[in-house]
Simulated assay, not measured.
Amino acid sequence: MGTPLQGASHLPFHNSLQPPQPPLLVAWEPPPPAFFKLNFDGSVRNLSVAGGIIIRDSSSTFIQATSLNFGASSVLLVEASALHQGIQIAHQLGIQNLIIEGDNLLVIKALQNLCSIPWKIATIIQDSKFMLQHFSSVQVRHIFREANRATDWITNVGHLVSSPFVLPTCSQSLLSSILVSDALGVPLERRAA
């Protein structure tokens, strides 16, 4: 009968003196007064690629949400296209002060001029930047996907439609519960990337 440590030399070293890291909690936050927040997202499922946007005001009120089906494409192209569509909608609604949030770091950095723009999305990003000149104030932020749950839900609807679908004001109970959780600032634990 062998000892419990027999063959233990191949096990990774574990430092039990270092406490485990507390979980990172993230939550959607409403924009400040006089601002609106545009969240965008993209999703790939089987051969379907979909995007979605949601616009909310400083009291977390749902203003508009749209699901988009892009057929077969790349998630990068869809995320950039959803962003572009969201900016167009915000402009059509007469919004002047806009905060843009998305969980695709490359698209966010491209919009912020913090990286070279991939050729696949260069025209979309350049046109998005041009449209943003029509707003009085614009902020662009990266968020974790856990803080982008409402847009993720809306994006998944895009897999079920063939043309842009404007969601009726908060008619779905699951979306309603996500929006209420967001408005209350209910945090979620950040999952590993």
Rank of each mutant, 00 (worst) to 15 (best):
P33S: 08
F13I: 12
P12D: 12
L47C: 07
L5Y: 14
L68Y: 15
L47W: 10
K109S: 05
S176V: 02
P168V: 10
P4W: 14
F135Q: 05
S74N: 09
L167P: 00
T155S: 07
P20G: 03
L77A: 07
V78A: 13
N69D: 03
P23S: 11
H159L: 08
S9D: 13
V26I: 14
P22H: 14
A80T: 10
Q18A: 02
S177H: 12
A27I: 01
S181P: 01
F130W: 09
S177K: 10
T169F: 06
L93G: 03
A90G: 03
T169G: 03
L5N: 08
H91G: 03
A27W: 01
V49G: 00
H134D: 05
L68S: 01
P164G: 12
Q21K: 04
F165E: 05
N113K: 12
Q139V: 05
G51K: 02
I178V: 11
H84S: 10
M1K: 15
V75E: 09
D103C: 08
L98Y: 08
V44E: 11
R145Q: 05
P22G: 02
S60P: 09
G185P: 02
I99D: 01
E101S: 04
N39C: 09
E146I: 15
Q88Y: 13
L5S: 07
M131I: 15
H134N: 10
Q96Y: 03
S181Q: 14
G52W: 02
S73A: 11
S128F: 12
H142R: 06
R191S: 10
S74L: 11
I108K: 00
L24K: 00
L68Q: 02
Q139M: 06
W153H: 11
K109G: 03
T66S: 13
Q172D: 10
S177M: 12
E101W: 12
C170K: 02
P12Q: 14
L47M: 09
S173P: 04
S177P: 00
F40A: 00
P23M: 12
P4M: 07
R56T: 01
A90F: 11
H91T: 06
W28L: 02
I55V: 10
L11Y: 14
I100V: 15
L188G: 00
I95A: 01
Q92T: 07
I55C: 01
L179C: 04
D182Q: 03
R149N: 05
R149V: 02
G71C: 12
R56W: 09
L17P: 02
V140T: 12
I89V: 13
R149M: 10
N148T: 14
S177D: 14
P23F: 14
S9C: 11
L114C: 07
L105K: 15
I87C: 07
F36K: 00
N148F: 15
S16M: 05
P32K: 15
P4F: 11
K37F: 05
G158D: 01
A183N: 03
P19T: 03
P33M: 13
R45A: 07
E189P: 00
Q92R: 14
L17G: 02
P19Q: 11
H159Y: 13
I55R: 00
V138C: 06
P4E: 10
A150E: 01
H142T: 05
L167T: 11
P30I: 08
P168W: 15
L83R: 04
N113R: 12
